[in-house]
Design a protein around this nucleic acid. Structure first.
Lengths: 346, 346
DNA sequence: TTGTACGCGTTATCAG
DNA sequence: CTGATAACGCGTACAA
């Protein structure tokens, strides 16, 4: 564990200047005689030379690094997003620094600060805070930002959103098309814009069809915890079933909650979809494994990550690329948890 | 988007030397008159000064960064590990660079190279390659390494393993204690040491009890894909049920596969646990939501991440800390997928 | 084609 | 207490 070799060491060994070594080892394309080139490369290899990017990046003012801030990597949605981001980053020889904000604005702020200090030039963020000042700061420093999932209303920031409203609308219309008229909606607390949007889509679809909406919202705060969400689904289903004229279809704000709905129904000897149909929202793999496989709205998480990273890299490269936002469109995954019904017979 | 402020800029504005500015702004504790100190801090704040860590780290030869290389962040096991690593890193003001090797040795190698170039001084890795040369290289450069999950046989590398063998043994003994004598084991292809160990534990327990082992191994390669593993579980269950005298209990090498087992059983009108008991392995949250909740062996993923990061930081700090490996112990999560049976009546 | 010399932003050493 | 100056490792005008 001696001191690492530098270009100067190699220069001495090869009896050339460090400039020449730099030119060869950084593949700059700068003309160097074949003989020298080979000698330097050989010596570098023999001495296990590892370039120190700190020096290079300080000089070049470009760390090949992008930052990612998400609420929590243990949430399958975000880990898919992260996976997509990293894939594109890797293809472009970038590396990613990932941070979990844990939905804590203070922590998010601290991480943004760290990113700036580390000279990151691009940031993908699902922001929980609405601290405009901080974001403005980023812009002043020439740091490009792509906001995913959670919108940041600010000029010069690129948005990649998911069309939650349309997803909610689509799901509800599908249930209606299958003949359902009493459609219940169960949701986590609507403290986040995305939750509100899904519900908004549901409400609009019900209104368009001239139907009465039935919404049950959780009392407790949303935790990124599968078991908790599942239980919420069960609980809200109980409430729905207590209605005088309970719904024939239940639409849940995410798949995990839909699993809870199905669980509660089956515990109470309701058959899905024969007695009650269930619609999810997310499109996680597990939905395929349920009894019956869950019909749901697919949220393109992995694709969202890839696209976010691509756009970010574009923004970092081009000087004045025309920026535009993206609204990822929902897709219905038709499986087997919804049955055709005849409203006349209800 | 002007040039970022440096300590020199601030020095000029405050009419002091940059040395003094550095002393104040880096909280070095070096004595500076109160008056000057406050003036410098005020000016720094007003000009939105952000320290450039590249300069600092180049000088100090210490990036506060650790690298993590795992097969895939979309695997819930590894995302929990990652979460644990990051938590400890954050508490110590470290930042983590995460990379997915995708089980590709070449990619893993490339990422290790990148880590070295980025002057990372510590690395947590679940290595897929057996390239000793590379690892040796890390050691020569004074980079501390903690190997998780997948063992790296090499002096000076700290191991945090999970006792798969004991887990397999424990699970099997539990089934035996519940009166089961015909216990089947279904497993993914045993191409990885961990898979072999679990099976080894099972075999040993069966031998100790003087029972005949019944192992069904998948033909196809293991993919980190929930649906695929689930299907494998179903498929292997079919094979098990085709035996002349099928088992009364099935032990699966992971929870997802156990879900597949339960699914196949219920499709064939076998009741769990009345007709057949099922034991999982992993302890993922979802197991609680099954019908019935899955009894399983808990693999402390999150804790593994935390411990790995702690040990790494210790190694990076202390000069010659006595190093020791850790074997995380399995724990049985007793839920409801296993019933007490009476071997006499079988 | 090669070498010299400087600067990227920071901290540390040594005088004053 | 404060300031000048030399590193850290690298790339690149500019000169030769």
């Amino acid at each position: 564990m001696n001191k690492p070799t530098t270009i100067h060491d190699i220069a001495k060994m090869a009896k050339v200047s460090s400039a020449t070594v730099s030119r060869v080892l950084s593949n700059s394309g700068y003309p160097v005689s074949k003989e020298l080139k080979e000698r330097i490369q050989r010596i570098a290899a023999e001495s296990n030379y590892i370039p120190n990017m700190l020096g290079k990046q300080l000089k070049m003012n470009s760390t090949m690094t992008i930052g990612v801030i998400i609420p929590s990597i243990v949430n399958p949605f975000y880990s898919s997003v992260m996976f997509g981001i990293e894939e594109v980053a890797r293809q472009n020889d970038f590396v990613v620094i990932g941070c979990n904000s844990l939905e804590d604005p203070a922590l998010e702020e601290k991480y943004i600060q760290t990113m700036m200090e580390k000279q990151v030039k691009g940031l993908v963020i699902s922001s929980i805070s609405q601290n405009k000042k901080l974001i403005k700061n980023l812009k002043n420093y020439g740091i490009k930002v792509v906001a995913i999932d959670q919108k940041i209303e600010e000029e010069g920031i690129c948005q990649i959103e998911f069309d939650y409203h349309k997803g909610g609308y689509l799901a509800t219309r599908y249930l209606q098309a299958k003949g359902h008229t009493r459609i219940g909606y169960v949701t986590s607390q609507m403290d986040r814009p995305s939750r509100k949007s899904i519900c908004g889509g549901y409400l609009e679809a019900m209104k368009d069809a001239g139907l009465e909406p039935i919404v049950e919202e959780a009392d407790t705060e949303e935790l990124y915890n599968a078991v908790h969400i599942f239980d919420t689904g069960r609980h809200l289903t109980q409430r729905l079933l207590a209605h005088a004229n309970p719904p024939t279809a239940i639409f849940a704000c995410n798949d995990m909650m839909a699993f809870g709905v199905m669980n509660e129904l089956s515990l109470r000897a309701y058959k899905v979809p024969e007695d009650v149909s269930v619609m999810g929202f997310d499109g996680i793999d597990l939905g395929q494994l349920m009894h019956p496989p869950l019909t749901t709205i697919k949220q393109p998480d992995y694709e969202m990550g890839k696209m976010a990273c691509k756009m970010l890299l574009d923004m970092m490269q081009g000087e004045d690329i025309p920026m535009f936002d993206v609204m990822l469109q929902p897709r219905l995954l038709e499986r087997s948890s919804i049955r055709e019904t005849n409203s006349v017979h209800q």
